[in-house]
Write a protein that binds this DNA or RNA. Structure first.
Lengths: 188, 188
DNA sequence: TGAATTTTGTGATTTTTGACGCAGGTTTGT
DNA sequence: ACAAACCTGCGTCAAAAATCACAAAATTCA
């Protein structure tokens, strides 16, 4: 919980009252490795803040899992599309390691928005962070070759490969496991 | 202007007062074909609502233009990263046809947020629309083959190819001009 | 309108990446 | 501790796409 509080404070002003109002929307939860935060087909009613651990979001394409993102400590994850329109989620969010997360309840949060301008600002900020992350990843597909994409990932996230297997990383980068293996071999 | 008002009303509640407050943030502008909305290196201080026409956003990679998105009627465009952090924009937004746009001033909007909860909700909504659009395009790179990507585009946006040249479309889809030309030939 | 520029179509060639199979190593769970 | 599942590396092969080259068509603009 304190993790989240500190994190918010580093980004935007939040008074004690603001925090108190926000607190009503929050629950802390522990997820075991491979436990599911959001099922496929489920309506997403929460935003998750990863306090510790890693989560993974992925599509299930007839048995094949295609990773769309990894969320490490101090990152927010949710399915915006499902969250805002109350539609069924097309993808899954799962704990990739044992994960501690703060669950932000959507309905309580919408109420809190009405009570506090600061919280509404916080809500916008979370969205902005999600957009920025996505924009970056999305851009990398057009601007960079697969190999450059891989290099960019390791230079920005040196611990990524320590925590995420080659196979999973390949799926995230949109290339085959073998191709990634070759890049890494060549690199040295 | 009325275009925007109707569009907002179709998505969220907006009282007459709310609209009045929002109006102070708005300016209508006409852009000639190829006129620039946001320069590279410039700090983005506006959100644009395209009333008519099309805009294109792209990176300039040593002379080569790489398209990241096209914005048609009733779509919002901006550079979120630059907008929120006041950093220099890494990409360019340009009118791809003669375009009529409503310019939403960032600073006035931030003020308006404080005055009206409805406007803050509107701000969140704009962000959500931008995320959803990006998420979709981004996902298409991992989930679909280039050819499927092309087919998805024409089925979702039948008029895309009428308004955007093959070369520009290819850059948007992240494939070479020649490959796209072949896909199209094969298709029908 | 007519020249210049940009866009498009197609063929030949090369490069890149994916698919498959298999063997050895590591991790997981009971 | 042991079996099962999973991950990794390496080879060959095939498929997909990029690149190059050039001609034809369309668009722009003075």
């Amino acid at each position: 919980m304190n993790n989240l509080k500190r994190y918010i404070e580093s980004l935007t002003d939040l008074s004690e009252q603001g925090w108190e109002v926000l607190s009503y929307c929050l629950t802390e939860r522990l997820f075991k490795k491979n436990e599911i935060l959001l099922k496929e087909g489920e309506i997403c009613n929460s935003i998750y803040f990863v306090s510790s651990g890693v989560c993974r979001s992925f599509y299930n394409q007839d048995g094949k899992e295609i990773n769309t993102a990894f969320y490490f400590e101090n990152e927010f994850t949710t399915n915006i599309k499902s969250l805002r329109a109350s539609t069924r989620s097309e993808y899954i969010i799962k704990a990739h390691e044992k994960t501690r997360a703060v669950v932000i309840d959507k309905f309580k949060l919408l109420d809190a928005y009405k009570q506090s301008h600061q919280i509404e600002t916080f809500g916008r900020m979370v969205l902005e962070l999600i957009v920025a992350k996505q924009e970056e990843h999305s851009g990398s597909f057009k601007l960079l070759t697969p190999m450059e994409r891989f290099n960019a990932l390791v230079s920005q996230h040196p611990d990524f490969l320590q925590r995420v297997s080659l196979t999973q990383t390949a799926s995230y980068l949109g290339i085959s496991r073998e191709t990634l293996s070759r890049f890494r071999a060549k690199k040295k």
